[in-house]
Design a protein around this nucleic acid. Sequence first.
DNA 1: AGTTTATTGACGAACGTACGTCAAAAAATT
DNA 2: AATTTTTTGACGTACGTTCGTCAATAAACT
Lengths: 340, 340
Amino acid sequence: MSRPTIHDVARVAGVSLSTVDRVLNGREGVKSVTQNRVAEAIRQLGYERNIAAANLSRKRRYRLLFILPGGGNSFMRGLEQEIAAQMDAWEFTAISVTNVPAFDDAALADALRRVDPQGTDGVALVATDSAIVRAALAELRGKGIAAVTLVSDLPSSQRQRFVGIDNVQAGRTAASLLGRFCRWRPGRIALVAGSMLVRDHAERRLGFEQVLRSEFPEQEVLPPLEGFDDQEIVGDRLTDMLSGTPDVVGIYSLGAGNRGVARAIAPLPAERRPSVVVHELTAYSREALLDGSFDAVIHQDRAQEIRVAVELLQALIDGSPIDPDAQRIGVEVYLRDNLP
Amino acid sequence: MSRPTIHDVARVAGVSLSTVDRVLNGREGVKSVTQNRVAEAIRQLGYERNIAAANLSRKRRYRLLFILPGGGNSFMRGLEQEIAAQMDAWEFTAISVTNVPAFDDAALADALRRVDPQGTDGVALVATDSAIVRAALAELRGKGIAAVTLVSDLPSSQRQRFVGIDNVQAGRTAASLLGRFCRWRPGRIALVAGSMLVRDHAERRLGFEQVLRSEFPEQEVLPPLEGFDDQEIVGDRLTDMLSGTPDVVGIYSLGAGNRGVARAIAPLPAERRPSVVVHELTAYSREALLDGSFDAVIHQDRAQEIRVAVELLQALIDGSPIDPDAQRIGVEVYLRDNLP
DNA sequence: AGTTTATTGACGAACGTACGTCAAAAAATT
DNA sequence: AATTTTTTGACGTACGTTCGTCAATAAACT
């Protein structure tokens, strides 16, 4: 009736509890014939480890470290809050957070080198793309510490996984929306980026232009306006552009600086108002959706990103199997009417 | 360093383990002064129950029953698969599934009455709106069995919670999308429903018309076409309508019958093709998004619905507190480019 | 003071697993 | 056959909680 236990496995395999335990936990000193007997009993009974009991017994503590960019980036601060909020939902897991200056690869590499191998089992970091970070990451992994990248990936490094959205897909989705919003309205489309030096932004732009070119070839995309994720700069430059280019019917803002976008379009008369798609659902972008300044927001679920990162690190530390589906972070679309 | 246990609580409160246990589990026979002392110690230490250990000890088994409409409804079959898939992810929980004929309130009421009060702790049902179902539900609850409605609600009944999307919000979202897709293209909008007797459909229509009337008043909505969730009927009636009404620029299909919608629009020349928004992401609607027949799909996450239903029932059975946020099922929007 | 009742404590077994120690048995080596 | 090595078993303790029993104490009644 109830789930089989190691006792049942031992009985069926005709061995002692100790032997089952040795097999189960990969300890040495068991003949392969016996191992097979045990494995067969497990298969036959459909035995599954009771993870709760196992953790209870070994009193395992996963000690994880999150390394996030500091500064006023509201997305990162949101992530931090999310970690704090989930902190005590994780049994057997202690999470600490370190801040490093944003876009500073040397500081990040330094932080990685400083990680205490005795007191840390796994690290999640928001990567800055650079050779010294790759080197520091390799060093970290050499000490036997698990590592995943979060939000921003670092390909061809020693990081074991990446947790975050597919930014090309995000850009494609924005194009898919904006293309449809503006399909029957002649005009051009403006792109507001933070900086093309940031990997995420470059990928989003790529995806956006892919789809717009192939599916909405009648729509012209203006060259991207760099706003360095600063609302002042975004506001000023976009205001400039809009006054010089009266036929803008759509705006895609693929970085931060949502306030700047809102400020630039506010003075426009209703009939000239372009359709606007931005990134990240926050208190501000939410308001802007509700009052009609923005049409859609592309979002990534921070809570889920943290959850997945923690679960992934736990699995990597244990060497237990990983479900590739469960790791996916979806590109979410919010309009005024399906806000959570 | 590690989390406090009941031992710590007992020590700090200056009482025995038994007393802490009695307070924690709401057993009687503890003076309220002592209760307060214990409560204070808990607060002071930030003690949190170790649920794994608790469940391990009490070897609790939640025995849950899901009652779903039978038949070929692919959404319901998907739910069933989801239950099967999650089955062994739930420790201490045994789930069984019963099918009843769809839209048959007598059969549903009968199934509810047949529930074995000894072998069942909680029930999740897809409700059919009817008085006899309400009566059967009240009877069930009278036997001390927890009950939640799933996907389709039954307001003002004894059901303790509802798990599913807000269908008014779903309709609003569809209108928000379709309104924007068709904003600069003169024409009318067609509505394809299953039947207005079904609560979900009625709510979706309500939300759709709310938003379209208020935000896109220039767009005219045609009276809804009833397709009874049958692709043949939907296909035929929609084909008819489209030939008689050449200025249809948007279609919202708020029930099943997606294949019928696709069939009706297939023969139209590209420039007359309307924007199409439908419900539920399935293998078919996915294909239709990819080949451009459909523009957007409004979706509800079946896996999450099952997960929430199970967790909710567990909490209701235990009488433990319920996090209202965690129960929410979001109205998801999928385009060709953010498909999972 | 004596009696009843309410409250508290002490204890032990159980849940399923981990892990360490020591001895017994089996196998492999001289 | 004697010895060493490998493999296995037996057993105990621990993890944090639940739950039941029984005794001890405190408080509330005659």
